[in-house]
C-alpha cells in the first residue's frame, strides 16, 4: 500500500497549529471551554476509548455463546453491558464474518465509525482512496491490505451513512480455543473489526 502524502503533510499544517492555538485562546478567554476539558478529552481518546474495547467485546462473543447471540441481536445493549456507550454509539450493529461471508465497513461521505468500540478512525479509513474505492472494488482494496478472498466468499460492503454504527465480528482463529481472554484480546486487531483483515 502507498504512504500517505495528502493528509498530514499538507502545506498548511504549520498554519493549522497556529489557528488551533488562536481558537483555543479565544474559547478559553471567553469561558466557552477550559484547558483541562481539552486535556482530558484528548487523554481519553488516546488511552481509554480505542480498539481494545471492541476487542474485549469480540473475545467475549467468542467465549460466551449467549453473549454472542445478544451482541448480534442488540449490539448497542451488549456493548453497553461492557461499559461501551456514548458519542457515535447511538445504535451499534455487529456484523458476523463467516467462512463464506466477509463484511467490510466504510463511510463514503465522511468518517462514521463506532467510537465507543474502536475510538477515532485511522487516517486510511478517512482517506479519499478508501472512501472512493471500497464500495466499487472491495476485493481489490482488500487484496492491497493483504486479504485475498475466494470468489465463493460474498463480500458485503457497509456504507455507514445514517446514525447506525457497524462493527465486524471476526472469526476466531483456529487453534486458539485454549487461550485466556487476555491472550485472545491481543489477537483482535482494529483492522479485523473494520473488515479489512481476517485473523
Amino acid at each position: 500500500m502507498g504512504h500517505d502524502h495528502n493528509h498530514h503533510h499538507s502545506h498548511s499544517a504549520a498554519d493549522a497549529e497556529i489557528r488551533a492555538k488562536a481558537l483555543e485562546a479565544l474559547l478559553v478567554e471567553k469561558g466557552l471551554i477550559t484547558t483541562d476539558v481539552i486535556d482530558e478529552v484528548v487523554r481519553k481518546y488516546e488511552e481509554d476509548i480505542g480498539p481494545m474495547n471492541g476487542a474485549r467485546v469480540v473475545v467475549r462473543a467468542w467465549t460466551e455463546p449467549s453473549y454472542k447471540k445478544w451482541l448480534l441481536d442488540d449490539g448497542t445493549a451488549a456493548a453497553a453491558d461492557m461499559g461501551y456507550t456514548g458519542k457515535e454509539g447511538a445504535k451499534i450493529v455487529v456484523l458476523e464474518n463467516k467462512p463464506d461471508v466477509h463484511n467490510v465497513v466504510v463511510c463514503t461521505l465522511c468518517s462514521c465509525y463506532p467510537w465507543p468500540l474502536l475510538g477515532l478512525p485511522p487516517n486510511w479509513y478517512k482517506s479519499y482512496a478508501y472512501r472512493s474505492r471500497v464500495v466499487r472494488e472491495p476485493r481489490k482494496v482488500l487484496s492491497e491490505f493483504g486479504l485475498e478472498l475466494d470468489e465463493n466468499v460474498e463480500v458485503r460492503v457497509w456504507d455507514s451513512n445514517s446514525e447506525i454504527r457497524y462493527l465486524v465480528l471476526p472469526e476466531q482463529p483456529d487453534g486458539t480455543e485454549g487461550l485466556s481472554a487476555a491472550e485472545l484480546t491481543e489477537l483482535v486487531t482494529r483492522d479485523s473489526m473494520i473488515g479489512v483483515a481476517r485473523l
Binding site: 500500500m1 502507498g2 504512504h3 500517505d4 502524502h5 495528502n6 493528509h7 498530514h8 499544517a13 493549522a16 497549529e17 488551533a20 492555538k21 481558537l23 483555543e24 474559547l27 471551554i33 476539558v37 481539552i38 478529552v41 484528548v42 481518546y45 488516546e46 480505542g50 475510538g119 477515532l120 485511522p122 487516517n123 486510511w124 482517506s127 482512496a129 478508501y130 474505492r133 482494496v141 492491497e144 491490505f145
Partner: peptide
C-alpha cells in the same frame, strides 16, 4: 490506500485539541 503502521490517534497535538474543542 495510505496505510500507516502503529498510527497514533492524533498526529500532532493540535489535532487532539481541535477534536476536543
Amino acid at each position: 490506500i495510505p496505510y500507516e503502521e502503529n498510527e497514533p490517534v492524533f498526529h500532532a497535538a493540535w489535532e487532539g485539541r481541535v477534536y476536543a474543542m
